[in-house]
Design a protein around this nucleic acid. Structure first.
Lengths: 211, 211
DNA sequence: GACATCAGACCGACTAGTTGGTCTGTTATT
DNA sequence: AATAACAGACCAACTAGTCGGTCTGATGTC
């Protein structure tokens, strides 16, 4: 099939419009007009405008959560895990920028039934991060004076905020940005011993040096 | 005057409602009902619902920008300036949590005439931060390999994100949270020499140690 | 000090426009 | 022929904003 499916076209168009004008700044009429569809076509594919919003949320959070869990399983030390999660998380901005914008701007407007499901996955994602930090402290790789939750939310916030300013095709690639983030975060978490330790600093330098 | 002025009551009520239900989730009718006012009273005080939204934005960004500029003037070294800005910025969350939530959630819906004014101040605020980082690098206090803009946006993002999870009257005071942020940021910015240097590390320890 | 005048704060029924969602009909597909 | 995919006119509900009117208090005048 050469033509894209209607559902896909609707989602793409909605995403583009929501990102720019906000969920409430875009009417269903506008979405269907802009992708050469109709009200009927829209409501054949979605139960409601809310369901479309949910769908967008779900695609993104599901992806991010999976990536984080994969990274957790793939690596074994807290530092490596953290780096891998950061890297994959940041890279999502190239793939899902519009999703992310909608996710963080419009989640207020999700109907309770939907937001419950989304929040569950969101919570799981946070827990993966907290877990890594906790293990890092226990292993002596991360500074023990750091409170896990706040540190975790700092990292998440720092990365999430990217959606407010990141422009794909800008002067810096997403990989370069990811490196800066990793560098900043490792500098603030690692203990002096960990920075010295061979294997950790080797991993650190190999992947994230500026030289 | 024992009774609060209507305009103030409207703003407070709107803030509370917007924070919870979002700008589009709250009707003018609901605002006026909830604060025992009327449509007439509302439109006597505001040209439009949009103007109310603008007003909320402006109060917050004006305050934050002033605080940052004050901090810049008051201190002389980049490290001190940065710490002071972070501290005052984070503390705003106790004062203006609802404003901030509205600011970051609903700015999409500001009419162009309004958003232009807001963005100007927003840009100024960013520039203060960038400036401090730039000066810190030049002075040898901050690591020279850090790109100014990204580092600045990391700091801003990390702090801003607080609005998503901070609960006043929670288990940690805003001052404690501010200290953690400062600690994380200084660890990621300061050069090894700066960490050693007496006056800087003294300032660092005096204000932000965990002991 | 009593009264007329007036301005500004506030009220609330009403309107005009908008928007999500429905319903009936048409077209493609197997 | 039967079903799924889609079209588009239509509807009902909602909501920002309006407009004529009321109430209160200040000011000036005799």
């Amino acid at each position: 099939m050469a033509e894209k499916q209607l559902k896909e076209r609707i989602i793409e168009t909605a995403l583009k419009l929501f990102e720019r004008y906000g969920y409430h700044g875009v009417t269903v009429d506008r979405i269907v007009t802009e992708c050469n569809a109709s009200k009927g076509g829209f409501y054949h594919n979605f139960k409601s405008k809310d369901e479309l919003l949910y769908h967008i949320h779900d695609v993104f959070i599901t992806y991010v959560l999976n990536k984080a869990q994969e990274a957790y399983v793939k690596y074994k030390t807290p530092t490596e895990r953290l780096c891998a999660i950061i890297q994959s998380f940041v890279k999502v901005f190239d793939l899902y920028k519009p999703h992310i914008t909608v996710f963080y701007q419009e989640s207020t407007y999700l109907k309770p039934e939907y937001s419950e499901k989304i929040n569950e996955k969101r919570e799981q994602f946070k827990q993966v991060i907290f877990q890594v930090i906790r293990e890092g402290i226990e292993a002596g790789e991360f500074r023990s004076e750091l409170p896990v939750e706040i540190t975790g939310m700092s990292i998440i916030g720092m990365i999430n905020w990217t959606y407010k300013w990141y422009k794909p095709h800008g002067s810096m690639t997403i990989e370069e940005i990811a490196k800066v983030f990793t560098d900043l975060i490792l500098h603030s978490l690692l203990t002096e011993q960990a920075k010295q330790k061979e294997e950790i600093s080797a991993f650190f330098l190999k992947n994230f040096s500026h030289s």
